[in-house]
Computed example of a mutant assay.
Amino acid sequence: MMQTDPLVDPQALRDARVKAGLTQHELARLVGVAGGERVSRWERSASVPRAEVLHRIADVLNVTSADLLVPATGDPDLRRLRVLAGLSARQVAEETHVSVPTYARWESGQLDRMPSQVALQALAKVLGVGVDEVRAALTAARRGGE
């Protein structure tokens, strides 16, 4: 099962929106989502934007995607790397030629052994990071999934 804990910091999102001088409706229109109530839900932690939408939000608010996330403690896990890359779990799975359930297990830390070097290299390429960072992220996910 994929992690469902909040990764987006609702207060950081609200603060960045207010600093940019935008209403919730204006931000929603600029990032291409339906209505300000969607932004309101994000700012109340009632829902979270998809990774690709988070990147559009960051662009509109002139911040980085990382600025809108809850601060990382320790090495970033695989989920955080995926979100920072602006990709869905399905996109990562397709780009690395693994099934979505396999990728979901990796992201949730449910792996018996580290993926092959070829798989690690594919993940690194898709996520735009080094193999060592992917290995550390999988280890972090494994710790979190225990």
Rank of each mutant, 00 (worst) to 15 (best):
A122M: 05
R142E: 09
V48I: 00
Q110Y: 12
L30M: 12
A20D: 05
V60C: 06
E43F: 11
S47W: 00
V92W: 14
A89T: 12
G86L: 12
G128D: 00
R142Q: 15
A124L: 04
A93M: 11
P49A: 11
V48Y: 04
A85K: 06
R17I: 09
T64Y: 01
L69Q: 10
W106Q: 10
R135W: 12
V98Y: 05
T73C: 03
L127Y: 02
G109N: 07
Q11T: 14
R90N: 07
R14D: 06
L13M: 15
V83K: 03
P10K: 11
S116I: 09
V48S: 14
H25P: 05
L138V: 06
A93H: 11
P6R: 15
P101H: 08
P6C: 02
D67R: 04
A140T: 13
E95I: 00
A20V: 04
R143Y: 12
G74A: 12
L127I: 03
Q121D: 09
L7Q: 06
S99T: 15
H55E: 07
A119T: 15
V134P: 06
A104I: 06
V63Y: 02
V53T: 15
R105L: 10
V60K: 07
R50W: 01
E37N: 15
W42C: 02
V92P: 13
L81K: 05
L69S: 05
L7Y: 01
P101V: 08
V126Y: 00
Y103F: 15
L22S: 06
V31I: 15
L54G: 02
R29G: 02
V134N: 07
R105W: 08
R105T: 08
S45M: 11
G109C: 10
A122V: 00
R50M: 06
G21M: 09
R41M: 14
A85S: 12
H97D: 15
A140P: 06
S108A: 15
A141E: 07
M114S: 13
T96C: 15
R29K: 13
S40L: 03
E146V: 13
A28G: 02
E133C: 04
L123K: 01
A89R: 09
G86Y: 12
G74T: 09
G74N: 08
A141T: 14
L30Y: 07
W42A: 04
V126R: 01
L13Y: 05
G144D: 10
